[in-house]
């Protein structure tokens, strides 16, 4: 079921975010943009204070929790989540940890994917399953791409078995001998 992890994650995480971010309504915290009514103050404050990606997630989250859509989206995603957790538990009956790339490609440039959020979300393909399953994972820098950008390896372990995850990561890290430093940092050091 891990192939559905990304889809499930981008339903559950925005749902929680839409609720978690409700406190930034201009009444108690931070920015307030005055309006002619309470509702207008809420709308102006939140429109001004949240960036495009946050607004997008609040909208998605509110949608998937709405009456009439809850069962089709949020509830189904939670069921997928339970199945993913079960898949991981089954896998850990025969292995101690899982080794995967951290991301499907090297890092993209700032502002490169803002027009296509799905492409941006796809970068989380390997990292979100652990979040959904509630298991620990770590990313270790392991080498460089053809373009000279760093690539990571991810180690995922059993629930509450951070120890194994950290020990495997330490072995990988010392074996990889990753010493590269970005030129602007290296230059700044001189």
């Amino acid at each position: 079921m891990t192939k559905y992890a990304l889809q499930a994650y981008y339903i559950i995480a925005p749902a929680e975010a839409s609720s978690n971010l409700a406190r930034y309504d201009g009444v108690r915290f931070g920015l307030r943009v005055e309006g002619n009514s309470l509702d207008e103050m809420y709308e102006l404050t939140r429109a001004a204070g949240f960036g495009a990606e946050v607004c997008r997630r609040v909208m998605i989250g509110t949608y998937v929790l709405s009456a009439g859509y809850y069962d089709a989206y949020y509830l189904k995603a939670q069921r997928v989540r339970a199945l993913i957790a079960r898949d991981f538990a089954a896998a850990f009956e025969s292995v101690d940890c899982l080794l995967t790339p951290t991301a499907p490609s090297a890092a993209f440039a700032i502002d490169e994917n803002t027009e296509d959020p799905i492409a941006m979300y796809l970068n989380d393909l390997f990292t979100v399953p652990a979040n959904l399953a509630g298991v620990p994972a770590i990313s270790v820098p392991a080498g460089l791409s053809a373009g000279g950008l760093p690539l990571g390896l991810q180690i995922t372990g059993r629930a509450f078995d951070e120890e194994t995850v950290l020990r495997v990561a330490a072995v990988l890290e010392s074996a990889a001998q990753f010493r590269h430093v970005p030129s602007f940092v290296a230059g700044g050091r001189a």
Partner: peptide, 9 residues
């Protein structure tokens, strides 16, 4: 949303 409900839920 209501002003006397700080978390919004």
């Amino acid at each position: 949303f209501y002003p006397d409900l700080p978390p919004g839920y």
